[in-house]
Every structure is written in C-alpha cells, then in structure tokens.
Design a protein around this nucleic acid. Sequence first.
DNA 1: ACCGTCGTTCCGTAAAGCGGAACGCACTGT
DNA 2: ACAGTGCGTTCCGCTTTACGGAACGACGGT
Lengths: 263, 263
Amino acid sequence: MTDAPLQTVTNAARLLKAFLTREESLGVSELARRLGLGKSAVHRLLTTLATEGLVEQDPATGGYRLGLVVFELGEAVRVHMDLHAAAGSVLAHLREETGESAQVGMLDGHDVVYVDRLESSHALRLFTETGRRVPVHCTSSGKVLMAFASEPVRERFLATASLTRHTPQTITDPDEMRRALGTVRARGWADAVDEREIGIASLAAPIRDRHGAVVAAIGIGAPVSRFRAMPRKRLARVVVEAGEAVSRRLGWSEDVMSLQKES
Amino acid sequence: MTDAPLQTVTNAARLLKAFLTREESLGVSELARRLGLGKSAVHRLLTTLATEGLVEQDPATGGYRLGLVVFELGEAVRVHMDLHAAAGSVLAHLREETGESAQVGMLDGHDVVYVDRLESSHALRLFTETGRRVPVHCTSSGKVLMAFASEPVRERFLATASLTRHTPQTITDPDEMRRALGTVRARGWADAVDEREIGIASLAAPIRDRHGAVVAAIGIGAPVSRFRAMPRKRLARVVVEAGEAVSRRLGWSEDVMSLQKES
DNA sequence: ACCGTCGTTCCGTAAAGCGGAACGCACTGT
DNA sequence: ACAGTGCGTTCCGCTTTACGGAACGACGGT
C-alpha cells in the first residue's frame, strides 16, 4: 500500500464498478465520460476485459455489460462464508418467528454489504437485495458490526467517516455515535428507527466466528408501524438468539469468551 | 479485439480468476508461481486490487482472497437475468414434480455456467452450485444451448472445442455431436446419461427471451438409478413445459415463432 | 443530405509497470 | 540458540506499455 497503485488496473476496477449501477448495458463513450478517461483507453480496457470474459458486448447495441465470469467470481466469494450455509435455516426461522424480512450483512470499509436475505411475506415489506451496499452509521447491522469491530477500526471509522444525514433521526455526531456503539456493545444488539429512511426500522445482532470475532450481523427489517407493535425486548432476544445460533454453527462457543483478551 | 490486449489488465483478470479454485486464501508467492509472474508484480496487482476492494488481505496469514466488491459485482450480473426472477418459482415446481435437483444454466464460451439451482431433497442428490462452470459437450444443458445457438457459433464450437472424453459415453466426435445437436433441435430437449460422470444423468430444455433466442437452459439432474426409473417421455414433457413457462415470463410467445427468419 | 453520436482504429510520446535483488520477519528442525 | 527456509514487502533502473488526440466508417434522427 505504500507503493503507488497500478493506474491501469485501478482504471479497470473502476470500470467494473461502474456497472454497479445495474444498468442494462453501458457504452464506451458513456463510460469514458463517467471515468474521466479517453474513449480509446476505455475501449481498450473493455476489449481486454472481454477477452477474459469479465465483460461482454451486446452484439445488437454495441454496448457492454458484465460477463458471466464476474458472476462466477461473485459466487466464489461465498466460500469465505460458511456463513452462507450456516445462516440459511436460521434466517428462515427468524422470518417465521417475526414475519419480517431477515438479512445477514458483512462489514466492508464504511459500508455494510448484504450477503444473504429472506423476504417477509407481508404485502408491505422491506426489499433487501443481496449484494447491496448500505451505510454503516444509520443501519442496525452497521452499528452492530462497528460496535464489535476492533478499536482501531472503530476509531478510524469515527474519525474519517462522513456520517451523512439521511433523516432527522440519523446520528451525525461522532461522539454521539461513539456512545451509541458503546450501548450496542453492552447490550449485545442494535436497532435503527427512521435513521436511514423514514418509515423503516431494523434490529440486528452479531455473528461470531470460531475465534469469537464478529464477522457479520443478522437482523430483521420492517416498516416502523409493525415494528412499534412488536415488544422490543422479545424481538431483541429472538434476533440475538438467531445470531448465537449462526455463531455456534461457525464453531463459536460461549465458554471460550473469558479467554479472550487482546491477542 | 484487433488491438493487442492490455497486458496489465489481463494479468489482473487472470489473478482474479485464480481465486475460482475457491481456496480459502492465496499468497503472493503462490499466485506468482501459478501466473508465471514476478512476486513484485503480483504484489502490486494485489495491493492495487485491494485498494479497490476487489481483493482483501487476511491480516492473520498475510494471504489474499476475493473482496466483497466482487460479490457485489456478481450479484449485479443477475440483472441481465430477469431470468433469476422468472425462473424461481418454476424451479420449485420442477423440483416438486420430479423430486430431483433442478437448475438453470447459461452459455459462456465453451462452457455452461449455472446461474440458479434448487436441490433435490433426496439423501442421494446432485450437488450443483451456482457459479459453477461445466463443459458443453457432455451435459444436457450444454447440448440444448449449443443446439439452439446460431449456426456460426455452433460450427465454431464444433471446429474449435476439444470434446474431452470424461467417460466411455462422452461424445467426442464432432460429426456425431453435430448429429446429436440436430436431434436435440428437432425434438426440443436433450439428455445426458453417464456422459460427464458415471452415475449421473440429466435432462434439459431451452429457455427463450422475448425475441425467441435461446438464452438459457433449464433442466434436472439425478442419479442414473432413479433417472432410469422415470418414464422418459413424461419427464421430457415436464422439463420442456418448465422451459416454456420461464420463456413466457420473459415475454416470449409461441405465436411469433413463425415470423422468425434471419433478421 | 446534413449533423451528431456511436464504436473502433491509428500513432507518437511520456510514464508506467516489469523483473531482479534485498530486507525483515515468522517458523522449523537441528 | 541457531541457521535455514519460506513468507510478504520494498526499492530501483530499463524497457515496455498504455495514454490522449485525432480520424474513420456506420447509424439514426431531423
């Protein structure tokens, strides 16, 4: 990281990320504009990536889109996730118990990425797509992940993250956030009501790997109306127990907790 | 494509693909060996990709693995796939009807990539992971996709693909394959018994988009023992109907078939 | 028949990335 | 304790490479 990053590779990576907008297909000129590069550079990048199968060209329109190799790679990521296997039935149980959409998220930088989910069967439900990225500071999953992250990571987050205001309820002050995370750490779960978007509420709890490190968060999301109707205490217990169930499947056991000081 | 591909980007792409082996994590030296590059080059590639989030370093072992951004990108690919939405419930129905694992595959080069699947509930079942790549010439899905591909694509495949023998039943002769694909095209479905692996059988039918082009294949896979016990004709009808059901959801209607000559 | 825009191609030059060697560190077997 | 061996990382100079800018042919509105 002390080295200057490879410019061309960086461009290629940015190019790929441009497709995260999930548009049907993107043209050379359009991409060149968004990336601030010359058309020829983008075209060369695209043809190169195409020979590797990372992107493909729509023969009809001439535009480009992500290739199936990217899909393959994405699926290969699930491997670091025994999580995927461990969480499956627990998510189902959690949805059954609460009737709401349930999801598992992991921390990546200052964002949470949802890696698994199961939707509520209510007509009015929360849509959560796997692979979606949401901010840390205004979601229950994010607060759990940050509360249980290592102290340097957490302090770095508080120092550098822009706690963007999304609603009047969003926590935007670093000190207030630090206090909030302390509370989360103490009681073992987090909630977020109207913090990211008015009308949405969520509650989440940590998932630990076999070393006790919090690697993911499991939680439920619901419309605030239904959320308020549920007894908060029972709901928290259900979600925390779901987190513990997944953690056990990952090889974690509560007994070793006491052994865990700093390494 | 007439241009010489960007070497650095090609290296980066190959580097990413090295992770398709789904190993927990890979080290700099190991990757350098596999790619035939210098350690320093690989290291620079990795750190660059890491700053973009495409890979991440395991702080404990120093090794690298794919990052969550790759997972995001992979999920974004599903968009070209209204397929994912369209196939969901049909897969469930197909599994219920046959009791066997059901899957949807797309063509990519000389391979089939499974993009969706649902597993049998039998104890002895076929494991099919999404994101897995299998050869065209010895799978029922592959034969369907190639049979209904455009003629240039098909002839190109017959001319250039190495029809590797996996079992005594594998079709390895291009002419025999051409005849087999003709049969598949005529009757509208394909099967493969013991062709990829002894003991495994599968049957697949095409999925068409709204223009009538075959974009994917849907099929079931089972142990040969159970497969033989099922009446082939009924099974084929069920699978073909599943394919048609998905096709209809993609906007295809049989009526326009007659209008479809070469564009 | 005109413009605007698309994807693609060509070329000269500046800078970017490669290999090779050296460093610090963590293990391992003596 | 101690070399010895592997790791990930860093540095540097030479050559290669990949960038921008301009030009081309094809399309599709107007």
